[in-house]
Design a protein around this nucleic acid. Structure first.
Lengths: 177, 177
DNA sequence: TAAGATTGAGTCTTCAATCTTA
DNA sequence: TAAGATTGAAGACTCAATCTTA
């Protein structure tokens, strides 16, 4: 994660802080405060991704597959959801979800069942095998994520979580652009 | 952004808060505090993405292309970087970066120039056209990002940015797994 | 030997069009 | 008419192998 090229910066600054310092030099009239939050949220997400994906890979899953299984599992018995609920919740396209479901079905982690209410809909059912894999992978995922946050005190973690929740809630309320 | 299925939750909870409530029901022994931060960072990043990509699209760019141009621009004159600096900074594979650079070169937004120091390296040079596009898109991007954060007070934004910076810095210091 | 960069194969994704049922 | 879901084409990415130069 080295710095790029020749700009000056305080050693205590993170990657996004250094970027902002560069922008201050190059485009001083542009307010980069948005980046201080959204840029960092993105940077952090990208940075922790490999460690989390490694957990899923250890359990034979990629993160897209895990997201589906985990969503099914945490919704609880009878472990049935409609594909539309899944792709909306996970913020992927409907076509992308169809592919994920095909892959998971081919491996016996989900099954499809006709809906009784709506003949257009083919319900997704989490199999016992899918439940086990989701549970095991999730447990280890949470362990790894907690470790990644170890540099923050308990209080800091709570403050950070609360502020992120407030932001997330405001974005949720906003019109879906 | 609807809730999935039949779980109970406080109306003030965001999407990740509701997920945690579901997990508490289904897997009460698993500590989901990591999700409260990393899950939300990811959710927020995904949620704001379409609005930001729309800005880039208005300027004829996708976010991958913008990231390259913006990195070049903020590094300042003489607007030259090595491909390796770019892909490391942007956390993409070297092969992916080669493709991006080919696309940008085809559109005249960057050029390649042989390195004087190292014959293995083909330097990337930002063209005047690339500079203009990067500057215009970045300016509007920052405007949109600031708007997306409007629900948080100035103080909250500063606290949130500081906590994220501390977390980011700790992740940066950590061994690159 | 290792590092910079590119290539090609394979994978997952989005988008727009389509089919079916509400 | 609209909504649920699937399909196929096109795009961008990763990974591993390769070539060249340090």
């Amino acid at each position: 994660m080295g710095d790029i090229s020749m700009s000056r910066y305080r050693a205590s600054d993170d990657a996004v802080g250094r970027r902002r310092a560069q922008w201050r030099q190059e485009q001083p009239e542009i307010d980069t405060r948005g980046m201080a939050i959204l840029g960092r949220a993105r940077w952090i997400s990208l940075r922790v991704r490999p460690a989390i994906e490694a957990v899923f890979a250890k359990h034979g899953l990629d993160s897209g597959e895990f997201d589906v299984l985990a969503t099914m599992l945490r919704n609880g018995p009878p472990y049935r959801l409609r594909p539309t609920e899944l792709f909306r919740s996970l913020m992927v396209s409907s076509g992308g979800m169809t592919d994920r479901l095909n892959r998971l079905a081919a491996r016996g982690l989900i099954e499809r069942a006709p809906s009784e209410d709506d003949a257009r809909s083919l319900l997704v059912v989490l199999t016992a095998k899918g439940q086990r894999m989701a549970r095991d992978a999730f447990k280890e995922d949470m362990k790894v994520e907690a470790e990644l946050l170890a540099a923050l005190s308990r209080t800091e973690q709570e403050q950070l979580a609360a502020l992120l929740a407030k932001l997330a809630l405001s974005l949720e309320d906003a019109a879906s652009d």
